[in-house]
Design a protein around this nucleic acid. Structure first.
Length: 200
DNA sequence: CAAGTGATTAGC
DNA sequence: CTAATCACTTGC
């Protein structure tokens, strides 16, 4: 069952980032009907105040424009000359909070993911933000896509309890000074598809 | 551990 | 216009 729009419009992006663990990220596919993975790792980016966020200080560019739109849409951007990263926009209009999807566990269409990822061990198929975008074929064509539409969406799948979820600092944002230490990364404890195994 | 990669951004 | 940067991955 598709996640309802109200969920994405919630006040606390941190709660949404936690709540996304265990939901299924689904992309339709012409060969396999659909390709999907269960979200096992997320990071919250808290808009204007967050030095690690693209919208820090109110920065507003062509790239991050969709983050200023209403929650419940995909924000996809390109980085390091090679990789896409998939985010979920949260909160109301003019409130540029997003949740980065850092890792999923393959559920539907694993054969297609193997083809897209090349000669890779299964545990490397979707265990990172760039990897999962290749496996699920989520590129800039999905930037701004409505999660209530038919291009990409999330479904309820599993629930994790408090102690199955771990929290720590975010990855790859050391430039963000005091915000680099904020515990805004969430992951499913012990899951082999989490991008790195470390506490924090 | 460092190279690769090019869109995006800020700063002239 | 130009130069620096970058929410990563892979292969050495």
């Amino acid at each position: 069952m598709k996640i309802e729009r109200a969920f994405y419009l919630g006040k606390s992006t941190l709660r949404i980032a936690r709540g996304l663990l265990g939901t299924l990220l689904v992309v339709p596919d012409e060969h396999a009907s659909r390709v999907s993975g269960m979200i096992v790792e997320t990071e919250a980016y808290l808009g204007i105040e967050d030095k690690a966020a693209h919208s820090y200080g109110g920065r507003r560019t062509a790239r991050n424009e969709v983050a200023y739109g209403p929650g419940g849409h995909a924000y996809v951007f390109f980085v390091y000359g090679m990789y896409y990263q998939l985010n979920i926009v949260t909160g109301p209009v003019e409130h540029p909070h997003v949740v980065l999807i850092r890792a999923v566990e393959p559920v539907d269409g694993i054969e297609i993911m193997r083809t897209r990822r090349g000669a890779m061990k299964d545990k490397n198929l979707t265990s990172g933000p760039g990897k999962l975008c290749i496996a699920l074929d989520t590129d800039r064509g999905l930037n701004g896509a409505d999660l209530a539409g038919g291009q990409i969406w999330l479904e309820k799948y599993r629930q994790f309890t408090e102690n199955e979820i771990a929290t720590g600092k975010r990855i790859g944002i050391d430039y963000a000074n005091e915000y680099a230490a904020m515990p805004w990364r969430f992951w499913v404890r012990g899951n082999q598809y989490v991008s790195r195994n470390r506490e924090g």
